[in-house]
Amino acid sequence: MQQLPELEVIGSALQDNVRRLFKGSLAIRQIDTGSDNATEQELAALTNAYYDIERFGIHFVPSPRHADMLLVTGPVTRNMAEALKRAYDATPHPKLVVAVGDDAIDGGIYKGSYAVLDGVSQVIPVDYQIAGDPPSPLVIMQSLLAILDGAKKAPKQKGQS
C-alpha cells in the first residue's frame, strides 16, 4: 500500500512531539457529545492500517482516567453536557482538551438549536480546536502536530486544578 509521503513526515514530527511532551505516550479519550458520527469515522480511521497512528505513540484508551487528551466531538447536546463535564473532571492532569470538528467548536450546523449548547467550550475549557466538518484523518494529524508544536511543554496546571 502506497502511503502519502507527507503522512510519514507529519507522523515522525508528531512522534517527536509526543516524546517531548508526553514521554512518548499520548493517550486519547474520545468523547462523543451528540455527534453525527462523521467525525467518529475519521477518528476511527486514524487507527487503521493506513494511518496507524499507534506507531507514533498515540493510542486511544477506554477511560478518561487513563487519558492525556480528550478529543471531544459533537455540538454538546444538553443531555451530554453534564457527562462531558464529568469526563473532564475525571481526567487527571496534565490534560489537553481538543474540540474536533465544526460541531464541537461552535455547534456547526446545529448552532442555535434548542437541543445543543453550541460547542465544547461552553461546558469545559477547550485548549485547541480542529476545524472541519468532518476533518480528514490527515487534517487531524496535522492539527495535532500543530497543537503539540504550540504546547511548549507539558500543559500542566491548566484550567482549574
Partner: peptide
C-alpha cells in the same frame, strides 16, 4: 499483532513509555 493486521504498530518499547508517562501524571 499490529504486523498481523498489516500495521506497523507502536515500537517494542511503547509499554515502557506508557508506564513512564503514567508515573508522571496526576491522579484522580
Amino acid at each position: 499483532k499490529a504486523r498481523i493486521q498489516k500495521r506497523r504498530g507502536a515500537s517494542l518499547l511503547q509499554p515502557y513509555r506508557n508506564l513512564w508517562k503514567l508515573f508522571y501524571k496526576d491522579e484522580v
